[in-house]
Simulated assay, not measured.
Amino acid sequence: MRKLSVLRWGLALCCGLWAFSGHAQEVLERVKNAGVVRVCIWPEYYGVTLRHARTQELTGIDIDLSAQLASDLKVRLEYVDSSFPALIGDLTGDKCDVAMFAIGVTEQRAEKLRFTQPYLRSDIYGITTKSNQVIRQWADIDKPGVLVAVQAGTFMEPVMEQRLQHAQLVRIKLPATRERELVAGRVDVFMTDYPYSRRLLDNADWARLVPPPTPFSVMPYAYAVKPGDAKWLAVMDEFVARIKRDGRLERAASANGLGPIVVR
């Protein structure tokens, strides 16, 4: 009876490994067979993957580079709307083949997903209003009574949760936005990255940047895929290496105002 149980366990393990091995080929084969690569984007990411509210046109570095990916693979490109809170579920739930919207490589995400080599990196910046008297410089942020906002699901959330010693962290969940909470006076400052800070500075006359005097928490950004598919990850990683070598990354970054944060 014991030998039979061991045999059944061995067969189950063998079959499981066989199924896992077959799964490892699934994404690339499906992309090639279907003739389409499905790319998850967050359509509110200025300079990265932004959908214009009126025209519905998509612009940004990863709109340009996802088109290059599809061209390299010789397949059509299909976008799937996602977000940072939905990212892991969308990839592991097979809603898209790859997430291309400057994904911060956090420890929490690395436990659930697999990442290419980084192609961008950004520090954390504060955004407040020009009229705000509480936050004048970076040193004013972590003080008693200060309300510091982060968008739930972004890499700023765990970083600020760990680093703040005196200020109160306020997590903003969609459909609420950091901008509305700040302008309404319900928070004093919100934390964001370089691309999103450019959106505010380029489009909001009330916004003021609060940069750290020295590097605070620099985060590498990469493309993400679901685990268990080494072949597909290798394809995506080689794509990133290739666009670094041939200049396409540099050109796309410069065209979208992100030249200063390129990983060369």
Score class of each variant (00 low, 15 high):
residue 1 M to V: 11
residue 4 L to S: 09
residue 9 W to T: 13
residue 16 G to C: 11
residue 17 L to E: 12
residue 17 L to G: 13
residue 19 A to C: 14
residue 23 H to Y: 14
residue 26 E to D: 13
residue 28 L to Q: 11
residue 31 V to C: 05
residue 32 K to F: 14
residue 35 G to L: 04
residue 37 V to F: 03
residue 40 C to T: 09
residue 44 E to I: 09
residue 50 L to N: 08
residue 50 L to K: 08
residue 54 R to M: 14
residue 55 T to E: 07
residue 56 Q to W: 12
residue 56 Q to K: 15
residue 58 L to V: 07
residue 59 T to S: 11
residue 61 I to R: 04
residue 69 L to T: 06
residue 72 D to R: 15
residue 72 D to N: 11
residue 72 D to A: 14
residue 73 L to W: 09
residue 76 R to W: 04
residue 82 S to K: 07
residue 82 S to M: 04
residue 83 S to E: 06
residue 85 P to I: 08
residue 86 A to E: 07
residue 87 L to W: 02
residue 87 L to S: 00
residue 88 I to D: 03
residue 95 K to F: 00
residue 96 C to I: 03
residue 100 M to R: 12
residue 104 G to V: 00
residue 104 G to I: 04
residue 105 V to C: 01
residue 107 E to K: 10
residue 107 E to T: 10
residue 110 A to R: 05
residue 110 A to H: 04
residue 110 A to Y: 06
residue 112 K to H: 09
residue 113 L to P: 08
residue 115 F to I: 00
residue 116 T to C: 02
residue 118 P to N: 00
residue 119 Y to L: 01
residue 120 L to F: 03
residue 121 R to N: 05
residue 124 I to L: 12
residue 125 Y to H: 09
residue 126 G to N: 02
residue 129 T to H: 11
residue 130 K to C: 13
residue 131 S to H: 13
residue 133 Q to D: 05
residue 140 D to P: 04
residue 140 D to M: 09
residue 147 L to I: 08
residue 148 V to S: 07
residue 154 T to G: 08
residue 157 E to N: 01
residue 157 E to C: 03
residue 157 E to A: 09
residue 161 E to N: 12
residue 161 E to R: 15
residue 161 E to T: 15
residue 162 Q to S: 13
residue 162 Q to I: 06
residue 163 R to D: 05
residue 171 R to S: 11
residue 172 I to F: 09
residue 173 K to N: 10
residue 174 L to Q: 15
residue 175 P to C: 07
residue 176 A to V: 14
residue 178 R to Q: 15
residue 179 E to F: 14
residue 179 E to W: 15
residue 180 R to A: 10
residue 180 R to Q: 15
residue 181 E to N: 13
residue 186 R to C: 12
residue 197 S to W: 08
residue 198 R to A: 03
residue 198 R to Y: 07
residue 199 R to H: 14
residue 199 R to F: 15
residue 201 L to P: 08
residue 203 N to A: 12
residue 204 A to Q: 15
residue 206 W to I: 05
residue 209 L to W: 15
residue 214 T to I: 14
residue 218 V to N: 07
residue 218 V to E: 03
residue 225 V to Y: 03
residue 225 V to F: 06
residue 236 M to A: 01
residue 238 E to G: 06
residue 239 F to W: 08
residue 242 R to H: 13
residue 244 K to M: 00
residue 245 R to H: 03
residue 249 L to E: 00
residue 250 E to W: 10
residue 250 E to C: 11
residue 252 A to S: 01
residue 252 A to M: 05
residue 255 A to P: 05
residue 255 A to F: 05
residue 255 A to Y: 09
residue 256 N to F: 00
residue 257 G to Y: 08
residue 258 L to Q: 04
